[in-house]
């Protein structure tokens, strides 16, 4: 069976899709891709639905070999560069990997999370409806584990005839404060704490992982203690334990918790926040439901438009002789510039 074989990868490399939906009532974290924008882009480049499972890289890249056939893949996110048998591949393009070829994925150069999709997705049995790996539940991925050297990921061979494409755009470039909606327990904080939360600069602490990002900055004072009877949590909820330092709960978060939650990052800004590295300064701005929903709509429209933004790759990157000629250097430069102009 046509497979990707892992030769090497970082310890946090795992399979992630849109998440494990419908089991939070049993305490099962939804998990899923930290940056759905990049997952959707990688999937669009190989003709997949946006939520299809891909390999998620966390800071470190890896190296992979194609076995028993030919594969169409795409790598998007964190400025990671790809090369085939040491020849660079233009960013945001469909990668054609032939039997025995080695795909090298570089480390993150901006942001943290990158995604390697394969046409048709992986032929691996989902657990509780998802391939998303969740460390604490021992669910998803390959046998409930992250990826490691020697793993063989079977792929759907009949999906490998998609035309190589390029996606001449970057994820929605948004800047400025991360937008939040206040609540559900903003009434557990003093007025000063709310004002500090919405005006001060915080920074992402080194204690940032798929479960949560601890923030450094001013302490937020509770008005009536920091114990609540545990209630439901969503992606992007900002909880404040007794230390007064906020923790943003991310995809591998728990399903319920007992620290007051001052606000939640709006869904449209969650991926942008997830890509902020430790040390990155961050500010928060409160928005209305209308503004948050409008942003969610805009994000959804952007994602839905990805397939129509694809253009055929103008050069046949699969042709062996092209790869071996001097043409390749100039071509890669041209494509790189094209991609970065947008």
């Amino acid at each position: 069976m046509t497979s990707i074989v892992v030769k090497s990868c970082g310890p946090l490399t795992s399979l992630q899709d849109w998440g494990r939906i419908g089991y939070q009532g049993f305490g099962v974290s939804p998990s899923g891709a930290m940056d759905r924008r990049c997952l959707a882009m990688a999937n669009a480049l190989v003709g997949n639905a946006p939520e299809t499972a891909a390999i998620e890289f966390v800071n470190l890249g890896g190296s992979f070999v194609c076995e028993d056939g030919e594969l169409r893949l795409a790598l998007v996110g964190a400025g990671c560069a790809a090369s085939i048998n040491d020849t660079p591949v233009a960013p945001n393009t469909t990668i054609v990997l032939r039997e025995g070829d080695t795909l090298q994925v570089g480390h993150a150069r901006s942001g943290t999370f990158a995604y390697l999709s394969v046409a048709g997705g992986f032929q691996i049995e989902p657990q509780l409806g998802s391939l998303s790996f969740h460390q604490r539940s021992r669910l998803g991925g390959l046998n409930g584990a992250p990826l490691k050297a020697g793993d063989r990921l079977p792929c759907k061979a009949d999906a490998q005839d998609v035309t190589p494409m390029q996606l001449p755009l970057e994820p929605l470039e948004e800047t400025g404060p991360i937008r939040v909606m206040m609540g559900p327990q903003d009434d557990y904080f003093t007025d000063d704490a709310i004002q500090t939360f919405l005006s001060a600069e915080f920074s992402i602490s080194p204690q940032a992982d798929r479960m949560g990002f601890q923030l450094n900055g001013p302490q937020l004072e509770h008005a009536k203690g920091f114990n609540i009877v545990s209630d439901g949590i969503v992606d992007g909820h900002i909880q404040v334990p007794g230390s007064g330092l906020p923790i943003v709960l991310m995809r591998d978060r728990q399903t319920a918790g007992g620290y007051p939650k001052i606000a939640a990052i709006i869904s449209a800004d969650l991926a942008r926040f997830a890509q902020m590295r430790p040390g990155t300064p961050v500010r928060f701005r409160a928005v209305s439901r209308d503004e948050a929903v409008a942003a969610a709509r805009q994000m959804k429209e952007w994602m839905n438009a990805l397939p129509s933004a694809l253009v055929p790759l103008r050069f046949d990157l699969t042709t062996e002789h092209l790869l071996s000629t001097n043409l390749i250097g100039g071509m890669v430069d041209a494509l790189t510039h094209k991609a970065s102009d947008h």
Binding site: V180, M182, P184, V234, A264, S267, R289, V293
Partner: peptide, 11 residues
């Protein structure tokens, strides 16, 4: 109680 744009808690 609002929980971001994508959730609501009925307390």
């Amino acid at each position: 109680l609002p929980c971001g744009d994508s959730a609501l808690t009925v307390e």
